[in-house]
Design a protein around this nucleic acid. Sequence first.
DNA 1: TAGATTGTTAATCGATTAACAATC
DNA 2: TAGATTGTTAATCGATTAACAATC
Lengths: 212, 212
Amino acid sequence: MVSEKTIGRLSLYRRLLNGLMEENRRNIYSRELALLAGGTAPQVRRDLMSIGYSGSTASGYDVADLADSISGFLGNPGGTSGVIVGAGNLGRAIISYFASRRPMLKLLAAFDNDPSKIGAEVCGRPCWDIAELSEKVAEFGVRLGVITVPAEAAQETGDRLVFAGVTGILNFAPSRLRVPDNVYVEHVDLTTSMEKVAYFVQSNTQRRTLEA
Amino acid sequence: MVSEKTIGRLSLYRRLLNGLMEENRRNIYSRELALLAGGTAPQVRRDLMSIGYSGSTASGYDVADLADSISGFLGNPGGTSGVIVGAGNLGRAIISYFASRRPMLKLLAAFDNDPSKIGAEVCGRPCWDIAELSEKVAEFGVRLGVITVPAEAAQETGDRLVFAGVTGILNFAPSRLRVPDNVYVEHVDLTTSMEKVAYFVQSNTQRRTLEA
DNA sequence: TAGATTGTTAATCGATTAACAATC
DNA sequence: TAGATTGTTAATCGATTAACAATC
């Protein structure tokens, strides 16, 4: 019903609205929200209509009420707990990134296969042996997993997570995961993102050089 | 001409091909590459056709030759140097992430406004005062910037980078940047990515609960 | 040749955009 | 009322998918 892109934008709208509430803003127009979110006004209205929320003509949307409605639809991400597999540089950064935000993902533990990390604490979270992954995930009833292992190990890691009952994966490894239909995978490829920017920078530079 | 999505996929293809070369694979079919990249075979062929590369029937694509052609089109990301603004948890992680990969972005320096960080080293890179940003960026001829500052400071940071001559920005702050037409912005919003996964996990859980 | 693959063309699908009537 | 905004409908655009001819 509601598209995946809309889900992502609603998440952004909610955070923008929370920011506005701190400034005591009461109402907002689709045009303003679109400007903040980097979209268009009709798009914002369509997104909100898709979750059954209506604004009122001439006064737009009530900031607090809209934030509540989006939360009612998206649910509370802070109520979801997860685990992270791969306690390298990126893994540690993700842990501290999410730990420093309030209504955010609770990462209960990290997993790694490096003996020097197993048993230690990583950014305040315990780091366990990957061999214990299935057991621990099932024990805590975790349904969300974050993958920050090298590309070669990503599929095996995904398989383990799914086997243990995880139904949502945030994958930072640059390889696509094959998972059952009921499992959702969100893919974040930092290297691709960076290379896209590098490409446009280089083509821009070339254009300038040719013009000169 | 070539779509932005294709640019991103070509980046992934190149890395997958580099991996295959280490295994001494000589040729590959669109179907196999699609499986690795998480796409479809016609899509892979279309992407390659869009950069003027042709395979041969019955033997597919030459791995080394294709990797070369993609590199000829995308350019060398390792030849691009950049700076990062914001030396917090995420900023440090990004520095170490890109530093640990070979043909990757060279981040020359970090910038921050925290006096305790200015003058220090951050993951082997110097950390300078944001006030010096324009001067330093112009001095080194940097054209790529990474933004890892809080949302409130993102637009100002982007303005400074653009003013100093940056034409490509990798933005990790959850707010859209307004930039001139000749500047390319790639947006990575980790919180949105995570909340999308959390949403699908929760809706999955609800469905299961209702079924039970 | 037979079989599998590639490149090309047409059809489909989805999302975005534009135009307009309804509303406060 | 006048003006600006919302929700709705139709048109456009782009990318993906499917079907097919060409090729080794």
